[in-house]
Simulated scan of single mutants.
Amino acid sequence: MKGQEWYQADSVAEEYDAKRFSRGGRLIDRREKEAVLEAVAPVEDERVLEIACGTGRFTAMLAERGADIVGLDISDAMLSQGREKARRAGVSDHIEFMRGDAARLPFPDDHFDTVFAMRFFHLADTPAKFLAEMARVSKRRVFFDTFNGTSLRVLYNWALPMGSRLYGHDEVERLLADAGLGLTNDAHDFLLPYGFYRKVPNSIADPCRSTDTKLGATRLGRTLASVSYWTAEVRGDSST
Rank of each mutant, 00 (worst) to 15 (best):
Q4E: 03
Y7I: 13
D10N: 03
V12N: 11
E14G: 10
E15K: 15
Y16S: 12
R26Q: 11
E32H: 14
K33G: 08
E34H: 02
L37N: 13
L37A: 14
A39Y: 13
P42E: 02
E44R: 08
D45Q: 06
D45I: 01
R47Q: 02
E50Y: 06
A52Q: 11
T55G: 09
G56E: 05
G56R: 01
L62H: 02
A63M: 04
V70C: 03
V70I: 02
G71R: 03
I74D: 01
S80A: 04
Q81D: 01
E84F: 13
K85I: 00
R88I: 04
R88E: 08
A89H: 05
G90S: 08
V91A: 09
D93I: 00
M98G: 03
R99Q: 14
G100D: 04
F107W: 07
D109E: 09
T114K: 11
M118N: 10
R119Q: 08
R119C: 10
F121E: 11
A124T: 12
A124K: 09
D125T: 12
K129L: 10
F130L: 14
A135H: 08
R140T: 07
F143W: 05
N148P: 01
N148I: 00
T150F: 12
V154A: 00
L155Y: 03
N157P: 03
N157E: 07
L160H: 15
L166Y: 11
G168R: 15
G168Y: 15
E171C: 13
E171K: 12
E171Q: 11
V172P: 12
L176S: 09
D178E: 15
A179M: 09
G182T: 00
A187S: 10
L191K: 06
L192H: 13
L192V: 02
P193K: 00
Y194N: 14
F196A: 07
K199D: 07
K199P: 02
K199V: 01
I204A: 07
R209D: 06
T211A: 14
T213M: 09
G216D: 05
R219D: 08
R222D: 02
R222I: 07
S228N: 10
T231L: 09
V234N: 13
V234R: 14
G236Y: 10
